[in-house]
Design a protein around this nucleic acid. Sequence first.
DNA 1: GCCGATCTTGCAGGACCTGCAAACTTTTAT
DNA 2: ATAAAAGTTTGCAGGTCCTGCAAGATCGGC
Lengths: 188, 188
Amino acid sequence: MMAALRLVDERGLDRVTVDEISEAADVSPRTFFNYFATKDDALIGDPVHDAASLRDRLLALPGDRPLVAALLEALTPSIEEIQAERDLWLLRMRVLKNNAQLLPALVAHGTQAEEDLITAIAARTGLSRDDLFPQLAATLTGAAIRTAMMRWAGTEGHSPLSDFVREAFGILATGLAEPTPSHQKAPR
Amino acid sequence: MMAALRLVDERGLDRVTVDEISEAADVSPRTFFNYFATKDDALIGDPVHDAASLRDRLLALPGDRPLVAALLEALTPSIEEIQAERDLWLLRMRVLKNNAQLLPALVAHGTQAEEDLITAIAARTGLSRDDLFPQLAATLTGAAIRTAMMRWAGTEGHSPLSDFVREAFGILATGLAEPTPSHQKAPR
DNA sequence: GCCGATCTTGCAGGACCTGCAAACTTTTAT
DNA sequence: ATAAAAGTTTGCAGGTCCTGCAAGATCGGC
């Protein structure tokens, strides 16, 4: 809800009530809660749509591709979608950064998406859903994306989001090896 | 607050009110909120204490040790502390698993700890706090720990938590390379 | 026993969120 | 065109969470 984002951006999360948001959006407060389960949800958007399609895309890719490469490729459409709504997302990220109380809600939504990811990764790797690897991989992927988006937003979207995601996945792929300050990848 | 955990374990988070918890703990509801900022906080505990000391321990370790090894070593006391209060933590994790609504709150607290971690990792690696690596490394570390604890709790604490953490950090160190089902490390 | 500091409590009240049923709008069928 | 059906929006009542404030209780030292 655009109205909500703008209000909260201006005044901060706890200086804005649901009543005010509703009024700005020309609906009753009761209708607000028909659309959003919580006040926070109005600011975070709807990642569920992304979650399912991400899973499908990942499963559609040839199985011999390295996992990280496959993840990156499966993510591309979602990333482009975000890039296409750049201003909305920059606003959203700014609101998130300025209202740390929202972070939990953001993670909650991400967790939903990660559940699907676990299944997909398990299928790809032939491991069980209960194994460590799929669970950890999904969690780390989510964490990497979140970090990338935070950094992207920090630059006001000057360079494309995909660059940040690619960089993060690079580290993810090679492991937390110590980078040199000029951080070339995996000198060997 | 032990009373809170037990009640919520029995009935579920939204079948227990703050009033009931307060009564079980023999304090007034108002006093409850003097101790815990929110109802959720009473269930999650106080990770802040851990956060600062983790940072200190990490900085005290010799700088030439690989990052992941250093992290693991710095974490050991915290892990032992959890292991020592095994029953409390297993109860807590069970409550978390059965009340997914709490997961966000858990992560929020972790985020606080991760802030400190970013600084420590940046100092260790000689990178800036604003670089990708420290931010990502801290986030991934948090995610790995959380995943390890979830899995540990899933086994009813049968094997020690440190095993799970070590395993997760192993993957973290070598990167998300595809493991074989018997997951030897990085066959090359 | 008195005094200051800390801890606990009650009260009033705002904000979030829900279930329910009434009003309204839109679509479909006749 | 009318009526029925289906879907949306709304108001209302009410429960719960959480906060600020000021009054009371408790505890320590002197």
